[in-house]
Write a protein that binds this DNA or RNA. Structure first.
Lengths: 139, 139
DNA sequence: TTAAAAATTGCAATGGCTGTGCATCGGGTT
DNA sequence: AACCCGATGCACAGCCATTGCAATTTTTAA
């Protein structure tokens, strides 16, 4: 049963599986692209914005999702992949933002290259967003 | 005379040199780090936020400054350097954001490496922000 | 030099977004 | 069953970019 799988996914991360959270997790699972809080709100018209906000916050704290700042002003959220180390170390993978459909994709296979900074700077994390046109919008 | 230099800088970029603009340009010139609209507003308490906003927008359109999204929610602005091609092609250089003093620096010598994207993605520009601690705050 | 036109500026206000305080609800525990 | 604690929903505050409009300043033209 699919609901069971979602439940387990939450329990694995030490998140109490409420109805709301199962729905949000399901929505995130069905998405290829990262989604913003507003996107979620549109998908769940019946629910409160703040609840969704806090749900995402909880997911993030527990390491179930990571947030992406793609420069649109609104953070986007995506499920962490198997090997996602976004909460352990720096978030290393590249994100792609399509200027046509405004969707943002994780490119987990593409890591951010090391940057040799000038001596006085100590780098801790890095965020690389490539903008352009995605496959769906290119045709 | 210094004012003359600032004036020329504006005229070069086809910007009409008003008092406001000269002051903003002067403020930008004196800064090593990139500054936000709010920073500017604090420096010019007598002037209106919207005017400063539009001044920066004009500067940006004319290629005098470029804006940086360092993930703090508020865009920051920095003067374009000699070889800055931010409006011609993609903005290639790296920015550094200090989590202690919240300042953002341009690292014009550090270019964003080319990323080989999966076939369906067409990259047009890229934004790389490294976060950490700057020299002033490291001590 | 003066009048008209255009650009700039300042004020008021809007809309989008994150985030907080507080009361309520519901599920789990004793 | 009574209790407790976390989750939820509502109201609201705060920050930011952005627009409309009127007043002012600067440029252009006569």
């Amino acid at each position: 049963m699919v609901i069971k799988e979602l439940e387990n996914k939450l329990k694995e991360k030490d998140i109490r599986p409420t109805a709301m959270r199962l729905l949000v997790l399901e929505a995130l699972s069905g998405q290829e692209a990262a989604i913003s809080l507003s996107d979620l709100e549109k998908a769940f018209e019946k629910s409160d914005r703040v609840t969704l906000f806090r749900t995402l916050k909880t997911f993030q704290e527990k390491g179930l999702v990571h947030s992406i700042d793609d420069g649109t002003g609104a953070p986007k959220y995506a499920l962490c992949e198997e090997g996602c180390e976004c909460n352990i170390e720096r978030d290393l993978h590249v994100h792609f933002h399509c200027r046509v459909c405004s969707e943002t994709f994780c490119l987990p296979k593409y890591k951010i290259p090391e940057i040799d900074l000038p001596g006085m700077f100590i780098g801790e994390e890095a965020n690389l967003v490539v903008k352009g046109v995605c496959g769906k919008c290119a045709d």
